[in-house]
Amino acid sequence: MGFFLETLIGGLMAGMLYSLVALGFVLIFKASGVFNFAQGAMVLFAALAMARFSAWIPEWLGIDSRFLANTVAFLVSAALMFVVAWLIERLVLRYLVNQEGATLLMATLGIAYVLEGVGTSIFGSDIYKIDVGMPKDPVMILEGTFEGGLLINKEDLVAALVAAILVGLLALFFQKTTTGRALRAVADDHQAAQSIGIPLNRIWVIVWCVAGVVALVAGVIWGSKLGVQFSLVTVALRGLPVVILGGLTSIPGAIIGGLIIGVGEKLSEVYLGPMIGGGIEIWFAYQLALLFLLFRPQGLFGEKIIDRV
């Protein structure tokens, strides 16, 4: 029982991080109808910026405090992500208003290549460290109840909490603010939104900026866990089954989907894996997503697609 609970808790905490990555997809899709394949590259770019600035800034400004250096590096990286968002709107999206979804998707593939190439050219392709003071050692709880206690990874716990706070803030932003409503209106119909005076270009810059900040937070968390390196782009692939399961247009869907995928893949690897050779957690998540695509293509919380003919 103790081991089952450990796996469950581990899955929930991993799932919270998947939700954070999936949020990046959902935000941009909700506001612009674009399935952003560059999300992984944005996570890598943001993490590289954070890692390098947190090393360079103490040298440039003579700062001794790690907290201060990390704060300045975070702000500079966020500003850089704003610039990236503005450039994406100026150079790519502006010319693709009202184009087919597939065209926009291809454009984001191009953005991904550019961000990966430019990011590693500017910041280098070595493994870099982000040290934001995340605890690395585990903690044992309920040692009296379960033999050997329950092991909780403190780093995962902190990461899941940060992700939960960010997810909550974004949900509020979308549901309760005027800009959030404008973003949802743009997602529904570009032309209709423009006709009632919503400035499409500005809205797109805003949403890519928000997605950039989400990528930065995801990059800091994953970069702190894994080290900042090219493999971070694959982290975005963990968000794909989540959005398919939760629905591309739903923030609660991203959260619940993330948790289901996180728990599902860990339990399947631990209990089902040994029977069929192991190493199944990644494809298990995609199999689950495939099942949802067959029976509920809009996902758990996505808007139902009704075509009138």
Binding site: F3, A14, D156, S231, T234, E265, K266, E269, G277, G279
Partner: peptide, 14 residues
């Protein structure tokens, strides 16, 4: 076994 590229190993270590 750990799937490529190996960034997710929580279940393995559990």
């Amino acid at each position: 076994p750990v799937a490529h590229p190996g960034v997710e190993q929580k279940a393995t270590w559990l």
